[in-house]
């Protein structure tokens, strides 16, 4: 992935800019993620279609923190190594299922003009972040705030 190596600068960002990444979390991806966390690994809804249906879900789902991490990755890949994530605030609105093809999309909603983030010389950028499934659902919606370096 060369994208994360490319540095983007604050001056190149404008309100309305949009960028995306596609993700398709498979059952092995979910298992690898939940293995990091004991509690998630023990929850059948994340691994087993029958357990998910018993809990009122259509089939096995992707854990919320994993979806959040996909959206974080979308943003960090776009920014480049000198950018920093300050915050990510997401709502899990509908389930994302194993093997769903998920479009992670971000939209720049505000740039802080001449602002100088806490005297660092960086500029703050506000983003709306959304995960969309091919069925037309938006399983995750939220916002992110990042700071990016300036050129020169």
């Amino acid at each position: 992935m060369d994208d994360a190596l490319t540095q983007r600068y604050f001056e190149e960002v404008a309100v309305g800019d949009e960028f995306e990444e596609w993700q398709q979390p498979t059952s092995p991806h979910v298992a690898a993620f939940t293995a990091i966390s004991g509690a998630l690994a023990g929850d059948g809804r994340f691994h087993d279609h029958a357990a998910a249906r018993a809990a009122g879900l259509e089939k096995a789902i992707v854990p919320g923190p994993m979806s959040a991490s996909m959206l974080t990755r979308l943003v960090t890949d776009w920014m480049g190594p000198l950018g920093r994530v300050l915050s990510l605030d997401v709502s899990y609105r509908r389930p994302a299922y194993h093997d769903d093809r998920l479009r992670c999309v971000a939209l720049v909603t505000d740039v802080n003009g001449d602002g100088d983030y806490e005297g660092t010389g960086e500029g703050a950028v506000h983003l709306d972040v959304t995960m969309e499934s091919e069925r037309g659902d938006k399983p995750v919606q939220g916002t992110a705030i990042v700071v990016m370096p300036r050129r020169g």
Binding site: M1, L5, A35, I36
Partner: peptide, 22 residues
């Protein structure tokens, strides 16, 4: 190892997390 497993689960290849030299 923890960082490597997390990156693997997300197909995360950002060299800030994966490439010592970079």
């Amino acid at each position: 190892e923890l960082i490597a497993s997390f990156c693997q689960a997300l197909d995360e290849r950002n060299p800030l997390y994966t490439d010592e030299a970079f």
